[in-house]
Simulated assay, not measured.
Amino acid sequence: MKVVILDTGCANLLSLKWAIKRLGYTLEISNEPSMLMKADKILLPGVGSAKAAMNQLKSFNLIDLIKKLHQPILGICLGMQIFGCRSSENGGINTLGIIDKPVSIINTKGLPLPHIGWNKIIVETKHFLFNNIPNNSYFYFIHSYAMSLNYHTIAKCNYGFVFTAALQKNNFFGVQFHPERSGTVGAQLLKNFLEI
């Protein structure tokens, strides 16, 4: 199986790479369109700003290609957020538009921002991405923006308000947390994705 991590130049590429290697998979890190088209599974990590991520994808002519891919794609943190239609960052950034829902700064109701650390997620309905993961498990988060609950939400988290912790639309999967930093439950989630 050919696993490709889309090289967005973000800081968590290597930790994600080693998390997947520990599961026994070989992989490539690439932003070459030909590599993505040949991949069986693609991971789209992201840390930082939506504007920088979209500029990076645009510079490699990947925006239209990503929307047309049919193999399973897992967006992680910012990688999931850019599946939305727009980010409120800097007054508004257009994103991939795969999910017709914007991403906004978290209304924490007085809790510290960014949301950093372990928080539990609730899986709304049984979903294979969470096979062998107990409900209310704790995952590691670091983010200031989030997507509200919507038709594609498969798990939620509460930090001042309830937001989408995981989603799926067709072949596009997303998690707001960092599975590569989330211990055994994070490793299990990556395994579940790679075994789709």
Rank of each mutant, 00 (worst) to 15 (best):
Asn31His: 12
Ser34Thr: 04
Met35Arg: 01
Asp40Leu: 02
Gly46Ile: 07
Gly48His: 07
Gly48Val: 11
Met54Arg: 05
Met54Lys: 03
Asn55Gln: 09
Leu57Gln: 02
Leu57Trp: 07
Lys58Gln: 14
Ser59Phe: 02
Phe60Cys: 08
Asn61Ser: 00
Leu65His: 13
Lys67Gly: 11
Leu69Met: 02
His70Pro: 01
His70Thr: 13
Gln71Arg: 12
Ile73Cys: 05
Ile76His: 10
Met80Pro: 03
Met80Tyr: 10
Gln81Val: 02
Ile82Asp: 08
Ser88Val: 04
Gly92Trp: 09
Gly92Tyr: 10
Gly92Asn: 03
Ile98His: 07
Asp100Asn: 06
Lys101Val: 07
Ile106Arg: 00
Thr108Gln: 07
Lys109Ile: 04
Leu113Gly: 13
Leu113Cys: 10
Pro114Trp: 15
Pro114Val: 09
Ile116Asp: 14
Trp118Phe: 15
Asn119His: 14
Lys120Phe: 15
Ile122Gly: 08
Val123Glu: 14
Phe128Val: 00
Phe130Asp: 08
Asn131Pro: 11
Asn131Thr: 09
Ile133Lys: 11
Pro134Gln: 11
Phe139Leu: 13
Phe139Arg: 05
Ser148Asn: 14
Leu149Trp: 00
Leu149His: 00
Thr153Arg: 00
Ile154Ala: 03
Ala155Gln: 03
Ala155Ser: 13
Ala155Glu: 03
Cys157Glu: 10
Cys157Asp: 13
Asn158Lys: 05
Gly160Tyr: 11
Gly160His: 09
